[in-house]
């Protein structure tokens, strides 16, 4: 079925799951992300983010300018925590 279409490749969340969240009244990418996990994957919504915005625009009848992308948080690439924890502070020469 087309409704089983995967929207979030990382977390394997389908279009019908995202639509269900919208039917329940969620209107932001961040809320949908918390509820369905779409956008919570390793890529942090880089691939699915815009698709989720498009579904919101269509299903909730919102203007594109009303749909903000999900919040960007560091790290913006999947950097292992081990690397982030290994903080090197070089003094300026």
């Amino acid at each position: 079925m087309e409704d089983d279409l995967l929207i979030c490749r990382c977390e394997e969340v389908t279009r019908s799951e995202v639509e269900e969240a919208i039917r329940m009244g969620l209107r932001t990418v961040n809320e949908i992300k918390r509820f369905t996990r779409a956008g919570f994957g390793l890529c942090q919504g880089k691939t699915c983010g815009r698709l989720i915005c498009d579904i919101l625009i269509r299903e909730a009848d919102m203007a594109p300018s009303e749909v903000l992308p999900g919040t960007s948080r560091p790290p913006v690439r999947p950097i292992p925590t081990r690397v982030l924890a290994n903080r090197v502070s070089k003094e300026d020469e």
Binding site: P74, P75, V76, R77, N86, R87
Partner: peptide
């Protein structure tokens, strides 16, 4: 080198190989 974050006061978080730096 990835700029993985941008913090207040124009400080950048860099990740490079096995470590990170500001």
């Amino acid at each position: 080198t990835v700029v993985y974050g941008l913090y207040h006061d124009k400080c950048l978080g860099l990740a490079c190989g096995d470590h990170s730096e500001d």
